[in-house]
């Protein structure tokens, strides 16, 4: 598979290529770099003290905490689910495998608004479990639990999708060898499978985390927008923007952008050092 891709990369670029490179660089600068500069520019538009005050605002602090909390619950769960799903699909044959694969991809093809609305239909006061939840004073929608559920649903495919092609490529020969040598299933997993997929797993977790912290649509549906209580960082940006507090909005947005930049650096580092073990690179 890789042999097909390599010759193209080594072919010399035709004469018009520098122009094309320049054009795409300019487009990227206009579409990506410029908005990023605007975010930071507007965040600091009224000086550093105003920026710091906006970030230290209690509602902003609670939005940051909530965002981290939601990601801290959703991402590990999705890592475990993702590894389990990828393991099943890549190493075993069973009926309904295609259906499972399609299900895993579903959140990618579904609008995030639907991913949020599903939980309202299930756990909202008028939903299937609404009466029981109210009777037992269990809050899911318009509370942290709902935000976590919506985030999990939206970010579910990231880890599994990263691992499946890699694990399929690796096959199960090494595991089979370990098992014939008398290793238990758990030992095989920890000593053989996990080391083989560690960088891809980290990569998937990174992408999953970036999306979990940046998700807007799905969490917007289940949030209820209570300030300082159920607004995550992306929702907080919208609230402040609509309050005409542009410095505050862009300050919060700059935090999100910084989280994105950190993710990007880590991701690039991973790609650079362990490209062979990442399925994302194999596909290209």
């Amino acid at each position: 598979m890789t042999a097909v891709g390599t010759p193209a990369r080594e072919t010399r670029l035709p004469g018009a290529a520098p122009l094309l490179v320049l054009a795409s660089a300019l487009v990227m600068a206009a579409l990506v770099l410029l908005p990023l500069l605007v975010v930071f520019g507007d965040a600091f538009a009224k000086g550093v003290p105003k920026y710091l005050a906006a970030i230290a605002d209690p509602d902003a602090v609670s939005a940051v905490k909530l965002t981290l909390l939601v990601a801290a619950i959703a991402v590990p769960l999705n890592a475990v689910f993702g590894v389990a799903a990828a393991w099943c699909i890549a190493k075993f044959d069973f009926r309904g495998k295609g259906a499972l694969l399609t299900l895993i991809d579903l959140p990618f093809s579904m609008s995030p608004v639907v991913s949020g609305l599903v939980w309202v239909l299930l756990f909202g006061a008028q939903g299937w479990f609404g009466d029981w939840l109210i009777e037992h004073d269990v809050k899911i929608i318009f509370a942290t639990t709902g935000l976590v559920l919506a985030t999990i649903l939206v970010t579910f495919p990231f880890v599994a999708r990263e691992l499946i092609p890699l694990m399929q490529d690796q096959g199960s020969d090494e595991e089979a060898a370990a098992l014939t040598l008398g290793a238990s299933g758990f030992t095989t997993f920890v000593r053989i499978t996990l080391p083989n997929i560690r960088w891809a797993l980290l990569y998937g977790v990174l992408l999953c985390n970036a999306r979990a912290m940046g998700e807007f649509g799905a969490v917007s549906v289940v949030s209820g927008h209570i300030r300082g209580l159920t607004t995550t960082l992306p929702l907080h940006v919208e609230v402040l923007y609509n309050d005409y507090d542009f410095v505050g909005a862009f300050a919060a947005a700059s935090l999100l952008a910084s989280l994105g930049l950190v993710t990007l650096v880590l991701k690039t580092g991973l790609e650079w050092r362990h490209s062979g073990e990442l399925s994302a690179n194999r596909r290209h």
Binding site: I134, I141, G224, I226
Partner: peptide, 20 residues
């Protein structure tokens, strides 16, 4: 005292769906 703001119809919908 906590505040939540949005389009009036949307807010009513959220309260109907269980926003406390």
């Amino acid at each position: 005292i906590k505040q939540s703001h949005g389009g009036s119809g949307k807010q009513a919908r959220a309260v109907i769906d269980g926003l406390q």
